[in-house]
Simulated scan of single mutants.
Amino acid sequence: MVLPRFITAVLVLLILPLSIQAATYNAIKEYSGATFLDDWDFYGHYDDKMNGDVNFVTAAQGVSEKLAYVDPNTSRTILKVDNTTTVPYPEKRNAVRITSKQSHEVGSLWVADIYHAPYGCSVWPAFWSFAQDAAWPAGGEIDTFEGVNLHPTAQMGLHTEGSAGCSQINPTQLSTLVNTTDCAGTNNAGCMVTNTNPNSYGAAFAQQQGGVFITEFAESGISIWFYSRKDIPSSVTQGATSIDTSTLGTPMGNWPAAGCDINKAFQPQNLVFTVTLCGDFARPENIFTQTCTGKCYDDWVIKDPSSYDNAYFDISYVKVFSTNPSATQSSATTSSGATGTQTGAQASSSNRSDKLKVTLLSVPVVVSAMLDLLML
């Protein structure tokens, strides 16, 4: 049966908006400059979450040992692994993990401008988020960036509680390497996607002066974009007061709400930067020997400290945006105060990944399609 053209056009309008959603987010919080570290908690404990061979320093240690500081020449924040101390067996090397004091709800988007990210044999860096007030993986986890050892690219993904029933279904994304689709999975492995941009990790990332990661945490789904520095869209600047996702193109990873009830599976997210050594992801022999030689701890953590000369984050800024008009607009300015606290985050465990994003079409495009149908 052939439907009347007008009815066909109406059906198009009814169906398309379910999958083609763009949104404008307004700036509510910025972490940058001399006060970057003021609104983050230092873990201040050995790595008992990812089982890494590090002691995460307190704020005071971070300052005194020059492992967490703002570079006075660039005003960018440095978070690093100790690369000067010879660590005796069976001790652990000092490193940094920080968690934002403020959590960010569904309807948020955050931008991280990073010039350098840690890499090297035994190194496992990540920029991610989780529900600090929930017992992991309840409350969900979003992994924006995660690298390991000397692997050439990073990965992205979600971790959710099994009862949430989350999976990656029909994503619209640039990545062609989907590692897992069940967001719980065996041993909470999550639904992970490889960032197929060749400059997303390691020496290539550093040579390109890093880039920008954007995470959208929305009811319609979760999306992650990555741009090397030369490819950052003109709409994405530190001074931007809003971001329209229709200007961002197709995300690298996308997890639509069709496969996951975001409000059910995720609680407000605290942002995290961490770099650990070995641990559940970098240590296993089947992973470590893909790009490195020897034993993760024996031949790297307690040997030449200069092996960690590249194990540092160099962060220009992190900026959070929201669609919630009642969000605190005054916090859109740079945070202020002293250098962080020593409170430990209640954090998660290993392996992380990415998600997919829907095609972004504006309402005028849909209306134009309907008019074309009417003219037939």
Results as ranks from 00 to 15, higher is better:
I302W: 04
V212Y: 14
G294H: 02
S223C: 13
T245S: 15
F281T: 04
V236E: 01
S242E: 14
P268H: 11
C296R: 04
V318I: 13
F226Y: 00
E285Q: 15
T274E: 14
P305S: 06
I262E: 02
P268Q: 11
S235T: 08
S235K: 07
P305T: 03
W255Y: 14
K303M: 11
M252A: 12
F205V: 08
N286L: 04
E219I: 08
Q208C: 09
D314H: 06
F281G: 05
N263Q: 14
S316P: 01
F288P: 07
Y201W: 13
K303C: 07
G279Y: 00
C278K: 10
G221M: 04
G210A: 09
D314A: 01
D299M: 03
V236N: 00
I222F: 07
G249M: 10
M252E: 15
L277A: 05
T274M: 00
N263V: 03
W255D: 14
A203G: 12
Q238A: 12
Y312D: 08
Y317A: 11
F266H: 05
G210T: 08
G249F: 10
T215R: 11
S234V: 11
I224K: 04
D314C: 01
S234F: 13
Q208E: 15
I315T: 09
I287R: 08
P268M: 15
S234C: 11
K295F: 06
Q207V: 04
K319E: 09
P256R: 04
N270C: 07
T245E: 06
S223D: 10
K295C: 09
C292D: 05
C296D: 05
E219L: 13
T215A: 04
D231R: 02
G221D: 15
P305L: 13
E216P: 09
V272C: 08
D244K: 10
